[in-house]
Computed example of a mutant assay.
Amino acid sequence: MVTNKEVWVQGVFDELGALVLSYIKTIVGDVHQAEDILQNVFVKLWKINIQSITNTKAYILTTARNESYTHIRKNKKFSAHVAVDCQIFSKTTDPLRKICIEEALLKLPQEQREIIFLKIYAQLTFQKIADTLKIPINTASSRYRYAMEKLSDLLGETNNE
């Protein structure tokens, strides 16, 4: 017998699973570790009272972030290499352009890379990003601005007004 909660959790997974997995990969850099963490996120989601969630997307991204950093802290042998799926950040089909974007993203500090992911791919507002990362909204917007400026510099794009 399928319960309402099972249907709800499956719906959340269908809607947000790929997004959350990409976010976790952005943090931990390994697809296999990211899949394990994703499973932990949905186990936690299963265990909570779903009526207490006011914003499912923000809640699950916050949980994914917390689980990812818990995983990093627990694994002393964690690799510092971070892989970034550049397809989530660029609509270009040019493979060389994608490689350039990926390399540029890898040069950003983790906190800026995470903001770029949440703003561009997850399409969160700065307020929701601030809530998810537990930082002031001005910090979220300035990290985004600095990240975009650094990406422009790294990619050789200038803003000629």
Rank of each mutant, 00 (worst) to 15 (best):
M1I: 10
M1W: 07
M1Y: 08
N4W: 11
K5R: 13
E6Y: 08
E6C: 06
E6S: 12
V7L: 13
V9W: 00
Q10D: 13
Q10K: 14
G11Y: 08
G11C: 10
D14T: 09
E15C: 08
E15I: 05
E15F: 09
E15L: 14
L16P: 03
G17P: 09
L19P: 04
V20C: 11
Y23H: 14
I24P: 02
K25C: 12
T26M: 11
T26C: 15
I27A: 09
V28H: 15
D30Y: 15
V31R: 15
V31C: 10
H32W: 12
E35S: 15
Q39F: 05
N40F: 06
V41Y: 05
V41T: 07
F42T: 04
K44G: 12
K47D: 15
I48Q: 01
Q51R: 06
S52C: 03
T54K: 11
N55S: 06
K57G: 02
K57P: 01
A58G: 08
A58N: 04
T62C: 08
T63H: 03
T70S: 11
I72A: 00
R73I: 04
K74T: 02
K77A: 04
K77G: 03
K77F: 02
H81E: 15
V82D: 01
V82A: 03
V82F: 02
A83Q: 05
D85A: 06
F89S: 07
S90N: 01
T92M: 09
T93G: 10
D94V: 07
R97Q: 13
K98L: 12
I101R: 02
A104F: 00
A104Y: 02
Q110L: 02
E111V: 12
E111N: 14
Q112R: 10
Q112G: 03
R113V: 01
R113P: 00
E114I: 00
F117I: 00
K119R: 14
I120K: 13
I120C: 08
I120L: 14
Y121L: 01
Y121M: 00
Q123S: 07
L124S: 00
L124D: 02
K128R: 13
I129K: 07
D131G: 05
T132M: 05
T132P: 04
K134R: 15
N138P: 05
N138I: 10
T139M: 10
A140T: 02
S142H: 11
R143L: 13
Y144R: 06
R145N: 12
M148N: 03
M148Q: 10
M148C: 03
E149T: 09
E149G: 08
L151I: 09
S152G: 15
L154F: 13
L154I: 07
L155E: 15
G156L: 12
E157R: 15
N160R: 14
